[in-house]
Design a protein around this nucleic acid. Sequence first.
DNA 1: AAGCCGGGGAT
DNA 2: ATCCCAGGCTT
Length: 345
Amino acid sequence: MTFSEVIIDWYRQNKRELPWRKTTDPYKIWLSEIMLQQTRVDQGLPYYLAFEKAFPTVFDLADATEEKVLKLWQGLGYYSRARNLHHTAGYIARERKGEFPSSYKELLKLKGVGDYTASAIASISFNEASPVVDGNVYRVLSRYFGIDTPINSGRGIKYFKELAQELIDKEDPATFNQGIMEFGAVQCKPRSPLCSECPLNAGCVALKDNLVDQLPVKIRNARIKHRYFNYLIVHNEHRTLLFQRREKDIWQHLYEFPLVETEKPMSEEEIISHPQFKELIGENRFEISLYNKENVVHKLSHQHIHATFWIVYLKNDIEGGIRKSRIKEYPVPVLIANFVREYEF
DNA sequence: AAGCCGGGGAT
DNA sequence: ATCCCAGGCTT
């Protein structure tokens, strides 16, 4: 059997039943592929079901507000995916009458659709023999063929794409693409792959040379940055302040409490004398207390957020405040959602 | 080419 | 604590 025959045969016997595998509707395939970018199937699945229910067609998604889309996306991370998803839905619905591009080349032009996603949609929805190369494929190919070219180098990206192009089943690219990804996720796992019961173990270079745990090779990424977020829970009996993040930074367009970012942890005296605090509170009388005695460390893949929540109670009206009872309607980062759930005003 | 963008699960 | 996940965009 050829490589692709083994993959397809394995897939038919071992595939998981997933909702997006029951259709070739490009809208559903697109939605699932965007959601699964850098995201495990188990984590993305409940979000996919919620989106499918809330937005059965691309027109429903296009008609929604960005805020509603972000709210449904809350907790899934990489929020630019949700913003691009909404933007592209508007383009498809209004300028293309709901019709998706039907080739890899045209799909690639959509915002939020890169090389991987364009190939995935082109193959699954339109039967185009365009190979997907995701983290799973890098792992399977680097091990089976014993390739130590870094997968995140320019050379590596080009090499693995070409190799996958040679291997893809031209008659059934959809099954091959999904098969090799599923194979990487279930059989050829990052840690403790199931080599002894692998249908490809006879020809696997990494297994023969005992290099399975050395491949794929990846160039190490940047160091983790530490940031100190002082959130000011400025509230009175009924209202609290909540602002939308507009800067080019993490959590763009999500909501949060007034934020004072500092270079190091702040004491109460330092916070109330901070220019941003003074500008926010002005001459109003307030009572301040520290909510979390212990520093909350919210870990992102590339930075650690050391968060402190300062409860600032006012007796007078709050200009621009929102009703506390409506706070759960806003899309917020998990860090904020956790606080809101615990504090309960 | 390198940096940035989340959150969670597995080891 | 580290790695990695059905990656893409910006600089």
